[in-house]
Design a protein around this nucleic acid. Structure first.
Lengths: 205, 205
DNA sequence: GAATAATTTCATCAAGTGCTCAAATTGTGT
DNA sequence: ACACAATTTGAGCACTTGATGAAATTATTC
């Protein structure tokens, strides 16, 4: 049977992702996880501790995977293309969204929330785990497209990131019906990811 | 002096936009607005009423402006271009962000929150005010680009919208430093908007 | 200016909140 | 089997929450 800690983290991740971190009461988490009031405090000390644990459960593996993809690109004979660089950002997250089931998607939606509200705990955790890869990617980007101004490139990257979080979070779920007169099917997950990569690459260039 | 109702709405808009709607207590709003406890309930009945009033204060004008832009495009001799259609979505919001000062930007950030958490009240309000324009735009888009599949187009639109909200909300504010080694200036507001329009147009086509 | 309506104040309520802690339970090593 | 540590429980605390309503204040109308 699953560890109590993980049971709490799973439940918290699920509840946090729907409405945001600070809307969920610790009692909600406890009762939904089927444990009693004190355990959460015993293990994590409080809401901040839970959030930190959630992040530290997934961010490291994400960073490792991105770094590995980057190494592969470096080792290749040809210079990497822009879509390939974008893949370094998108694919590991997409794998989370597609292969880890709903839990992965919830985590990504949680990331979207944390980004939007500029959550302090997330910012420190993110800079700890994703800063190295980010630095290499941006350095490459600047070298490759020297004609682009720094401000505009940063701007486009930030647009792209927001689009990515929100898209991956809703992968496989019925979206807003833009064309109500036509019955749209939910697209294949990896097709979504490819569209997203193209989207971002086009936007940057 | 400003109306009490507006004072409450301004304050609520500001507080809601930073951390999300349900994190802010009604007491926070009342004390920050400098009025006493009961007024909020007297005028709006509760949190939901405040949110609804906030939306109904800004959404109608937005819809009118979009509809007007659409009429101009219709009246033109040439068929509208894709960037022009995108402008119909982006420019009215951008005007809000740039010309209405911080209040406008806060409103947009609030929209981003409401979209992310699939807020019920927002969804009904949005469908009331923006559904007509949306329908015309999507019809035009489908007619213009019949080779695109419905699913992918919907997908790209939703990506674009998320990017738009998050970008416009942070207009004029120092963003995340992607290239820490270079001192980036905050770009000119309307340049941001133009980049955004290009970004979306490129992404759709 | 008197009468009426609209608005504002604030004490008060029940319910929910994060958090603590002693006691009960379970696990672990000897 | 025992001792000891780790974990779990649930009652309880101080505090905040949304909401109510009667009284006080201010606007409006005749």
């Amino acid at each position: 049977m699953k560890d109590t800690r993980d049971k709490i983290l799973d439940t918290a991740e699920r509840l946090f992702s729907t409405k945001g971190v600070n809307v969920v009461s610790l009692r909600d988490i406890n009762t939904a996880a089927g444990v009693s009031l004190g355990v959460l405090h015993y293990h994590f000390g409080g809401r901040d501790g839970v959030l930190k644990a959630i992040l530290e459960r997934r961010l490291p593996a994400l960073a490792v995977e991105r770094q590995a993809m980057l190494e592969v690109l470096r080792a290749g004979k040809k210079a990497p293309t822009l879509p390939q660089m974008v893949e370094v950002i998108v694919v590991p997250l997409a794998r989370l969204a597609i292969e880890q089931g709903k839990g992965g998607r919830r985590f990504i939606k949680l990331l979207a929330h944390l980004n939007l509200e500029k959550n302090r705990i997330y910012q420190t955790e993110a800079s700890k785990y994703s800063a190295p890869v980010d630095a290499q990617l941006s350095a490459w980007l600047m070298a490759q497209y020297p004609q682009l101004s720094v401000e505009l490139t940063e701007l486009r990257l930030s647009m792209a990131l927001h689009a990515m979080y929100n898209t991956l979070a809703e992968i496989g779920e019925p979206g807003r019906a833009w064309f109500p007169h036509i019955e749209a099917q939910t697209p294949e997950p990896w097709q979504v990811v490819n569209t997203l990569i193209e989207f971002i690459a086009k936007a940057i260039r």
